[in-house]
Amino acid sequence: MTTTTIAGHEVEVNEEGFLTQPDQWSEDLAPELAKLIGIDPLTDKHWELIRFLRTDHAAMGETATLRRVSTQTGTAVKDLFVLFPGKPAKKMAYVSGLPKPKGCV
C-alpha cells in the first residue's frame, strides 16, 4: 500500500491514486482532492453529491454509479457531466475519498 500526502493529510492510496481508506477522508480534504483534479471551487451542488456518495457508500458498501447518483439525488446526468467534467463517476468518487464504482451502469 502506498501513502501520499495531500494538503498535510497522509492518506493511503491505490496504484491509480484513489483513497483506499474511506475513514481517512474528511470534509476538509474534499476541496483539496477536487483542486488536484481541476475542480475549484466546490459549490453547494458538488457538496450535495459528495455527501450523498459518502452516505450511500456507508449504507451500501459500494460506490454509487453515475445512474444511481442521478436517480437518487434527482440530478440530471447532463448536470453531473458539467459538475465533474469528462469522467463524472470516477471524479465524484475520488473527491469523496471512495473507490471508483464497480457497477457497469
Binding site: T2, T5, G17, I37, G86, K87
Partner: peptide, 11 residues
C-alpha cells in the same frame, strides 16, 4: 516535498 499521487483523469 514530493507531489501527491493523483489519478490521471485527463491524460
Amino acid at each position: 516535498m514530493t507531489s501527491p499521487i493523483v489519478p490521471s483523469f485527463d491524460a
